[in-house]
């Protein structure tokens, strides 16, 4: 196997330097920007995102994996992050790609990463790759907050961090900022409120291609909520391709589990993107 051409860099985000890892093939057919899902899901998907990025790279797709401001190896504190800032950082990266290439740009979004989508973002990209997208912000936040309850239950020391509290604003003034600490993630309570307000409506005007991977046993029917989401999407101008993954939900497993079924199907999508772009060049 040829050595990967990988560049690690810190680029200037909206508020500070952000870590990103770029894999650039010799001949570039497209760009794929991986939007990390939120909080613990970023850790739970990291291994598969790396595998996906390498697979895409081998099909002639430049892949970019990065960390949001205040997370992972990027600068800043989660406490200073907000939804708009993260969205601006993504838009900035897309704009940079568009500025130096006319090749198509795709976003890969796993789980809660779709909560970061904005209308502006969707008008700038050619397609989306969705992995078990979690469009229900309210439900995502509810699950995240339940971590605090579960930690209390287990007598975990983190339980003491579970309560929402008021803290004095950094720069004085009368307004108090509500902060929250769940499972070691310290943030403004407003961030969770912003995320809870996100929903599928964000995709309403998208007219690119969408490759949707849904984990579901072959013997089981899709839940009514998922059917509704997919129908809603299919009614738009976009082209929706559905892929069923009958495999362990790797991000939930307490031990590393490679979802070969997903990786194989996704590789076929990358190959398809390359073929389509190769024909149009």
């Amino acid at each position: 196997m040829a050595k990967l051409s990988t560049a690690v860099e810190f680029y200037q985000g909206t508020k500070g330097p952000l870590f990103r890892l770029i894999r650039t093939p010799e001949q570039v057919f497209a760009y794929l920007l991986f939007i990390p899902p939120l909080f613990e899901q970023a850790n739970q998907t990291r291994h598969h995102i790396t595998r996906s990025a390498i697979n895409a790279y081998q099909q002639g797709i430049t892949t970019i994996v990065f960390d949001h401001y205040g997370t992972g190896d990027s600068s800043g504190e989660l406490m200073d992050a907000n939804l708009l800032l993260w969205q601006q950082d993504i838009i900035k990266q897309i704009a940079e790609l568009k500025a130096h290439s006319s090749q198509p740009i795709y976003l890969s979004l796993a789980l809660s990463a779709v909560l970061l989508l904005s209308d502006e973002m969707l008008t700038q990209v050619d397609g989306l790759i969705l992995l078990q997208p979690d469009f229900n912000g309210k439900r995502f936040v509810q699950q995240f907050k339940r971590l605090a309850l579960a930690a209390q239950l287990s007598g975990n020391a983190q339980a003491k961090n579970s309560q929402t509290r008021n803290s004095s604003p950094k720069h004085g003034g009368d307004n108090e900022q509500k902060t929250i600490d769940i499972a070691g993630y310290q943030m403004q309570a407003a961030l969770l409120e912003e995320l809870a307000g996100q929903a599928l409506a964000k995709l309403s005007d998208f007219n690119g291609d969408c490759y949707w991977f849904e984990w579901q046993a072959a013997s089981e029917a899709l839940s009514p909520a998922k059917i509704k989401q997919q129908q809603s999407f299919a009614q738009k101008d976009s082209q929706l391709y559905l892929y069923q993954v009958d495999d362990v939900k790797f991000w939930q497993a307490t031990a590393l589990h490679i979802s070969s079924s997903y990786l194989t199907q996704e590789q076929a999508v990358f190959s398809q993107l390359r073929s389509a772009q190769g024909e149009s060049n």
């Binding site: 699950q143 339940r146 971590l147 930690a151 287990s154 009514p224």
Partner: peptide, 20 residues
Amino acid sequence: AEFDSMALVTLIGEIEAHFD
């Protein structure tokens, strides 16, 4: 040992989705 707070919350989510 593996049934920690994360596994517990994950299970709750799966139960809610599976059993509606």
